[in-house]
Every structure is written in C-alpha cells, then in structure tokens.
Design a protein around this nucleic acid. Structure first.
Lengths: 233, 233
DNA sequence: CGATCTATTGAATTCGATCAAGGAGTGTGG
DNA sequence: CCACACTCCTTGATCGAATTCAATAGATCG
C-alpha cells in the first residue's frame, strides 16, 4: 500500500521498492479502539498502517474528542515526530489494524540513502497537510450535509488510490458517533444528514458498506475537487 | 525574527545566524490586501515574512474565503513548496508587509549545509501543523466566544515570541470580517462575541490594539494550553 | 438472554446566520 | 472646508440550522 501510494508521487526504482518492502514486512496486529499513541507521549517510532483504519484525534477539556485525520493503509503517522519530545495528539485504531513500527534510525537511514523515497515521503506529508487544510475549510464553513458529502468524497478517492474501492463502494467502518466527532456535529444531526444524503439518492450505507450512487452530484454538493490529494487516480 | 524564532527551537551557532541573516536581508515591501501567492500558481520561491501580517486562505465555490493560517514576522510560507507544481491556497497580506524571497536552491543549500538550521526549520513546520490541528479543534467544536478567545490567546503567545507584545497588548490588524473568515462565523456574530469578551472584562480592543486584561481567565475560557506552540516564551 | 453499543425519531431550545439599517471613521475631490 | 463615497463597526429583528433531551428500536456480543 505504501509503495503504491508513494509511487503515485514519484516513480520508484526496484531498489526503492525493496527498501520500502523491508521496513513494512514486520507488522503487529492491534485490536479495534486501541490507542496507538497517546497525547503527551514521547515519540517512540514512526508507525505505518498496513491494514485497517486509525484516526488522529485531540481531547477537549469537556471530555469529548475531535478527530483531525484518518489514517488508511499505506499512511504513515508522524514522519518527523522524532524532532519533538511530546506528541500533541492521540492515535486510536478504528478497526483492527496491522501496523509496522519503523525506528527513527531506520527512517533517517532511509531518507538519507534513498532520495526518491525521501522525496515521495515529503510529498506525502504535504498531501496530509493539504487534507487538513481542506478539513478546516470543510468544518468551518460548510453545512452538515456538505461536510459529510465532502468526507465521503475524500475517502472515496483515498481508498481508491490503495485499491479498496470496488463498484463505487467502500467499507466505512466508522460509527455515526465517530463521524460526528470528525465533522464537529452532534450524533443526532449526523444521523439526519446521512439520511438526507440517502433520501437524495446520492449514497447508500448498509452495514458499514458505503456506495456512492452519483459521484458527480455528490462532488457538486460537497464542492469537492480531488486535486489536493495529488493522486493520479 | 526568524532567527529569534528558530533559536527557541534549537541553539543556533554564529555561523547559523549569519546564514539566516544573509537570506533575510533582501526584502521587498508589499501593500496591504495584496496576493503574494495565488491558488493554482507554480511555487516560485519560499517567502519569509519579516514585517507585517499575512494570511493563508482558500476560496469557497460560493465566493467566500476561509482563512486557514496567519503568517507573522519570522514565519516562512511553504518550506517544501518546491515539491509540488501547484499551490493549493492563496496567501494575502493583511497589513503592509516586508518579505524576503528565498529561492528553492538557496533553501536547499541551507538545509543541506546547515543541520541545526534544517532541524529548526523542520520543527517550525511541525509547529505550523500543530497550530492547524488546534484550529481544526477550535473551529469544529468550540462556541463562538471560545473560538475567538482561543485565537486571541494563540496570537498573544506567537506575537510575544517575536517581541511584539508590550504590557499584555499587541496589534491585531484584522478587521472583524477577517476574524469572521478565520473563525467560520458571520461578521455580525463575530462582533457580538467580541463584545461579550469585552463585557466580561477579558480584553479591550481599541483601534487595532488588543489588550488582554485577564490572561488566565481568557485561557480558561478558550481551553488554551500553549504547549503546542513549542515556545519557551 | 440480558447487557451494551449503535441507529433512529420526536420535541423543545439555542446558537448563530441572515436581513436590514444606522453610525463612526477615513479619504478624496470639488 | 464640506459633500460624498467607502469601509468598518454596531444594533435590532427574524429565521433557520444544529443541539440537547428523551425515548425507542436494532445490533452485537459475551
């Protein structure tokens, strides 16, 4: 997944691929709803998600949490985390996950010895940043229905990029509560907005299977333009 | 300003300082409300703000804009911009500014030859990211009054770090419309929320001069904890 | 088969948006 | 120096989107 993703930024040589393969073979599995990294921790290693979905979130004083990113297969958490001595957010699995721990040393070696990979990794952090910017716009100025539509569009493209979309459909393993924590909405309103999207014939959502029935209409509503994701897909 | 900021992350040698001094001596001045970088542009150079305030923002389909960051003296725009071929946001001056243009080549040389500076610059992009995360939480889950209080607290600390705070007071050269675009609020509600902060005796705002009357109360309301800014100040 | 999440629905309330208009300050040109 | 245009700030009134509270119905699971 990581190779596939990075290769969409720059063309990787066989050596590059072999290097990336090596660092992502040794994985451990983690149960759903487990904290991988906790706010305040010292960064231990760079995490690579190879399977499953996790989220980055922050805690509010009042006890709620705000999700600020989703980590899909092929995504790295905190490439440069080694530079600080305190992580400022929590990372929690949503589904069961497999993750590879990449030591800071390994990462530093990789970046030093492998310019193409280094470039691709830097670009992927830029995409992460672009996603966060887009979320900021989304959450601060769009209506509930548009917000959710936007997230659905984004995840559609990101899942597609790692081959997890079939027939306009992907697994969205989030609860409505998770969605609410992502969109800055109440669960009740999240529920009603989802119903609105279904009622308009834009999506179906059965179990955790989300199907986009009308991509162009959904994108229009969400004001979604995928160029910020920098993927050829 | 840049040196002062970077020095708060790592101790810089005299050589480091001299290098940084050299890249920031040649500045040009820009009028208020001018676009420095436009969405869709090819990145030309890294910009360093030496005086004045600029903002990073995105345009909505409906014509409004959403401010996603403020750039204060000492802040760099887009350290890694050279990696992409299309900027995904606009940067506009708020006040008159002085900026230094740093070519990608100069920046690459600096990063290559000067490990301490490279480290400090990487850290400063991490702080930028932390700020964006904090904004995401702010805007998506806090009430209008808390949001504005949070921004005031953040700018207080950031201005203080570059020596622009005297007697609990700094210049906030934003119009209420700018503030509204930042907070995802209407101008009317922004106005009323500011009044609320004044009424509670937390701030005064005369002309563009903002004074924080009760830092600890303001921080409490905003749920503001400055550690994410990673400044000793 | 209870127990515990998760999803859904209804009603009441509130926060913030929108609409509309009036002042206050600034600059410009006659 | 005054009339005007313009931007920014302020206020009132109304409207609407989203929250909150509360209750029920499905799922899921040990």
């Amino acid at each position: 997944m990581l190779i596939r993703k990075l290769n969409s930024f720059v063309s990787l040589s066989n050596v590059d691929r072999k290097m990336l393969d090596r660092i992502s073979t040794e994985t451990r599995s983690i149960a759903p709803r487990m904290e991988l990294v906790r706010e305040g921790d010292k960064p231990a290693s760079v995490l690579l998600i190879t399977e499953g979905i996790a989220c980055r979130h922050k805690h509010r004083a009042c006890g709620t949490r705000q999700i600020i990113a989703f980590l899909l297969p092929g995504d790295l958490c905190d490439l440069d985390a080694a530079l600080v001595d305190r992580i400022d957010h929590t990372i929690t699995t949503v589904t069961a996950c497999r993750v590879a721990d990449i030591t800071h040393q390994t990462m530093a070696d990789l970046l030093g010895s492998n310019p193409a990979v280094a470039l691709a990794l830097r670009m992927s952090t830029l995409v992460d940043r672009a996603i966060t910017h887009e979320w900021l716009v989304n959450v601060s100025s769009r209506s509930a229905v548009k917000r959710i539509a936007h997230l659905i569009c984004e995840l559609f493209v990101r899942f597609k990029a790692v081959g997890l979309v079939t027939h306009q459909s992907y697994m969205l393993p989030l609860t409505q509560t998770d969605l609410a924590h992502t969109m800055g909405l109440s669960t009740v309103h999240t529920n009603r907005s989802l119903q609105e999207l279904r009622r308009r014939g834009l999506i179906t959502l059965k179990g955790k299977q989300l199907t986009v029935l009308d991509v162009s209409k959904l994108r229009a509503i969400a004001e979604f333009d995928p160029t910020y994701l920098y993927l050829k897909a």
